[in-house]
Design a protein around this nucleic acid. Structure first.
Lengths: 201, 201
DNA sequence: CCACATCTGTAGTGAACACTACATATCTGG
DNA sequence: CCAGATATGTAGTGTTCACTACAGATGTGG
């Protein structure tokens, strides 16, 4: 029994191309024709490898969040809650306006609303965003335990807040806001975290 | 020359129904079949009255922003910049989780990304959001002139910030966050505006 | 070199979509 | 009551979509 004809394309490279298409056009806005052209393959290869359009999206999301996870680890490694927020939001301002990628964030741009048959795509994206928020929350819980955040502060609320600002910045970026505008938002946003921080002595 | 057969449906009532469909499913997710059913009319009546799907969206947006404008006037009537931000963000937390409407905000839920032939829809939505931001900006400029905001503050950046938080809350609401979660975000967010406010003497 | 398994390209499939032709119905002005 | 004008309901139109049948190509194990 032979092992069959080998695949002629690299799955990860193809995924990167697919990710960019979803990122730029959203889940429903991206067509199979656009995806296959960007990936340099034909539809049967796509379906053999990823199952269907939603399977391809999930694979692209896995890749996106994996790359993103490395960066998030650096973010939460900042010494204080305030620095975590600053590193996160200023980093997002830069990343979401990086000309190497489509503007905004795949987890937002990918789809807030979808039509019949794709209703679970928005929830899939929300679940990925929730992972980021959870990582922030744990970091802020630690910050509170360390006395970095005030005893009156609410780590979960802070994490939700930073996450909400990130998402808002993503929408702004996708609709044309430039890097400077996003940085201004980040700078203001950090001050709310600063207000929850214990005084330096 | 007669005036023709009169319309059998009320345009504003029909628009309210269409608005809800766009709000819940987004521009591309909403189908003409869903829209006509919700509006209680048939496709030819829709096209005779609104031109096409995009014309219907714009009419629905006009109605949405008109209703919203009344509320925004109340928001900017608050005595201080901090109170403006609080009234705005706490109000949004409530409005975006009002069971009488779909969750989130039509200006966000309507469409962040759209496919071929609808690329201008996201920009149309962004333009409407920009109107809100401009109204906030003018209010914050006044607050700075009145000494309510610190001389070092940047009214435009503050307005962008509040607008960004609003959008982020809209995305959260549409993906299942409850009222309490949004209120927590609002409470934290207001503290950034407070940090830009002059000390009360 | 042959049986078999997997991939690839061509060329479609049925379904859903936005939109409309057309006949009919209901109004106004004369 | 008639002519013109506009609205309505039925029943489509062509297009685009995600997805796939099929035949040929390319590999492995015996």
């Amino acid at each position: 029994m032979g092992m069959g004809r080998p695949r002629e394309f690299d799955a990860e490279t193809a995924l990167d191309q697919a990710m960019e298409v979803f990122w730029r056009h959203g889940y429903e806005g991206a067509t199979i024709a656009q995806l296959t052209e960007a990936m340099g393959i034909n539809p049967p290869s796509l379906y053999a490898c990823f199952g269907n359009k939603e399977g391809l999206l999930k694979a692209a999301l896995d890749r996106y969040t994996k790359l993103r996870g490395v960066w998030m680890d650096e973010v939460v490694a900042a010494p204080t809650a305030r620095d975590v927020a600053e590193r996160m939001l200023m980093g997002i301002a830069d990343k979401q306006t990086d000309p190497a990628n489509p503007p905004g964030c795949l987890l937002v741009q990918g789809g807030i609303a979808c039509g019949t048959g794709s209703e679970n795509v928005p929830f899939e994206l929300a679940a990925r965003r929730a992972e980021n928020e959870e990582q922030l929350r744990e970091r802020f819980v630690r910050a509170k335990a360390e006395g970095d955040l005030k005893p009156s502060s609410d780590p979960a609320a802070l994490a939700r807040y930073v996450s909400a600002v990130s998402v808002g910045m993503g929408v702004m970026a996708s609709s044309g806001s430039d890097r400077e505008a996003l940085r201004q938002v980040a700078i203001v946003a950090v001050q709310a975290v600063e207000a929850q921080s214990a005084d330096r002595t």
